[in-house]
Simulated assay, not measured.
Amino acid sequence: MRACTAEEFTALRTIIDRISPIPDVEWQYASQFLVAEDFAGGAFLQRAGDNPQASFVIVEGAVRIYYLSRGGREYNQAFLCEGQIAASMRSVIGGIPSKFFIQAMRPTRTILLRRDSVLKLYDRNDCWNRLGRVSAEGALIGLESRQAMTFESLEERYRTFLDEYKDFPYRIPNYQIASYLGITDVALSRLRRRMNLV
């Protein structure tokens, strides 16, 4: 871990203020709590079984969130990039070991929002509580959307994926997409041919 650069601090402000605006004086106070961490492509921000005490704000790069089945098969849950927050909320909030992995898909820079620091901010000013509420609402909407996909046909799930990630700035390999959809690479290739997307 290291101190945030001025560029990273500005990027964080832009990301957070888009979610819920924070006054300058609050940012000045919050700056004392901020640290950055860099991850090489393939490195883990968090592993299943970890008990993380921080969320990761992605300043540059991309990560994937995935689970392992009992048989060791990977199931991608989400892909996140600049301007998004990666975290196991049940771990950060509840102190429960994480059930999933967060892995950098390419070199990734993050700013850590540690739970103890966030709690101090919540106690200090309602603007931070509002940020927490709006962030939680966004996470719940995302979870509901992901759950709704389980009732869709494979073609509908793939179209939902394409729509959801159409603005993702990095190429997601087909085998990672197949894992997200819960199918094999071969099944995805067949689906793409059937949909004339090859």
Rank of each mutant, 00 (worst) to 15 (best):
G83F: 13
Q84K: 15
I85T: 13
I85M: 14
A86Y: 13
A87L: 13
A87E: 10
A87D: 09
S88D: 02
R90W: 07
S91Q: 03
S91H: 06
V92K: 03
I93Q: 02
G94I: 04
G94N: 02
G94T: 08
G95P: 02
G95V: 05
G95M: 04
I96V: 13
I96A: 06
I96Y: 05
P97M: 01
P97C: 01
P97I: 01
S98H: 00
S98K: 03
S98A: 14
S98E: 00
S98I: 02
K99F: 04
K99S: 09
F100M: 07
F100C: 06
F101A: 01
I102A: 07
I102F: 11
Q103S: 12
Q103Y: 12
Q103I: 12
Q103L: 13
A104K: 09
M105I: 11
M105R: 11
P107W: 11
P107V: 07
P107I: 10
P107F: 10
P107C: 10
T108P: 04
T108V: 05
T108I: 06
T108R: 04
R109A: 12
T110K: 05
T110P: 01
I111D: 06
L112S: 03
L112Y: 02
L113E: 06
R114A: 05
R115L: 11
R115Q: 14
R115G: 08
S117V: 01
S117D: 14
V118T: 03
V118Y: 00
L119N: 12
L119H: 09
L119G: 07
K120D: 10
L121I: 06
Y122P: 01
Y122G: 07
D123V: 00
R124V: 04
R124W: 00
R124T: 02
R124H: 05
N125R: 04
D126S: 04
N129D: 08
N129T: 01
R130W: 01
R130C: 04
R130P: 02
R130H: 02
L131V: 04
L131F: 00
G132H: 03
R133D: 01
R133N: 06
R133S: 04
R133W: 05
S135Q: 08
S135P: 07
E137D: 13
E137Q: 14
E137F: 11
G138R: 09
G138M: 09
A139C: 08
A139E: 12
A139H: 10
L140T: 12
I141E: 11
G142F: 11
G142Q: 12
L143A: 15
S145V: 08
R146S: 14
R146I: 12
R146T: 13
Q147K: 13
Q147W: 13
Q147D: 13
